[in-house]
Amino acid sequence: MKKNKIATLYLTVMFIVLYLPIFYLIGFSFNAGQTMNKFTGFSLVHFQELFSDSRLLLILLETFLLAFLSALLATLVGICGTLWIRYTKKKVTKNALLAANNLLLVSPDVIIGASFLILFTVLGKVISGFNLGFLTVLLSHVAFSVPIVVLMILPQLEKMNESLIFAAQDLGANYWQTLTNVILPYLTPGIIAGYFMAFTYSLDDFAVTFFVTGGGFTTLSVEIYSRARQGVSLEVNALSTLVFVFALVLVAGYYWISQDGSSSRKKRKKRG
C-alpha cells in the first residue's frame, strides 16, 4: 500500500512536468494579447484567425496525412526488416544488418536531409516529372522512421519462443498463416510502439523535410520554424491546442476500440 502511494506520487509529479509546457502553450492560445509574455485576458481571437487561415489549416491536414501514411509504410517495411534480421543465421551478416539499420538513426538530421536532397535531385534528372514535393517528403519520412520501428520490434521477436512457430507448422499452418496467426499477434505491442514512434518522428521532423520538400507542400514544423524570424504568433498556439485535442480524441478512441476488442475476447473465452 505504501509503495503504491509513492508510485502514484511519482507518476503524478512526472505527468505534471510532462504536461506543464503543453498547458502553458494551450493557455496562451486563449490570450487576448499577441505574445506569450503576458496574459492580458481571455479571448478566442487566435482561433478565429486560425480558422480563417485556410493555408495553415491545409498544412495541418497535410502534416497529419503525411504522418499517418509514412508511419504505416515505415511499419510495414520495418516488420519485413525485423523478420529478415531475426532469421539471418550468420552472425556477421546479422550484425552488419543491425549496424546498417542504425546508421540513419545516428546521422544528424541536417546530413540526412542534405544527402536525400542530392539523391532526389539526381533521381529527378533521370526520371522526368520527378520533382520535390509530397512524394519525396513521404519517402524520406518512411526512410528515417524504418530504423526506429525495427528497434522497437526486434527485441520482442528475439525473445519469441521458436517452438511456437514449429508447433504451428506441425499443425499444418503454411508460412503465411504462421506469420499472421502466430508471429504478428505476438509482436503486436512492438508494432504499435513502432508505429507510434514513426508517427512521432514524422510530426517532429524539421530539417529533413525542409530539404526534400517543394512544389507548395509544407509541413507544420517547417512552417513554424520559418516563422521564427518574424515571431511565432499565437495563432500557432491555437493550432497546437487543436492538435492536442485531436490527439486526445484519437488516443481515447484507440483505447476504446482496443478495450472493446479485448473484452469481447474475454467473453468468448468464457463461453468457450
Binding site: I22, T200, I224, V232
Partner: peptide
Amino acid sequence: HRDLWLMLVILPTWISLLLKAYAFIGI
C-alpha cells in the same frame, strides 16, 4: 489502464519542439 497512460506519455511529443522550447523560456 496502462496502455492509455503510456499514450499520454507519448502525446507531448506531437507538439512542435520549437514551441515547447518557447514554453520553457517562459517557465
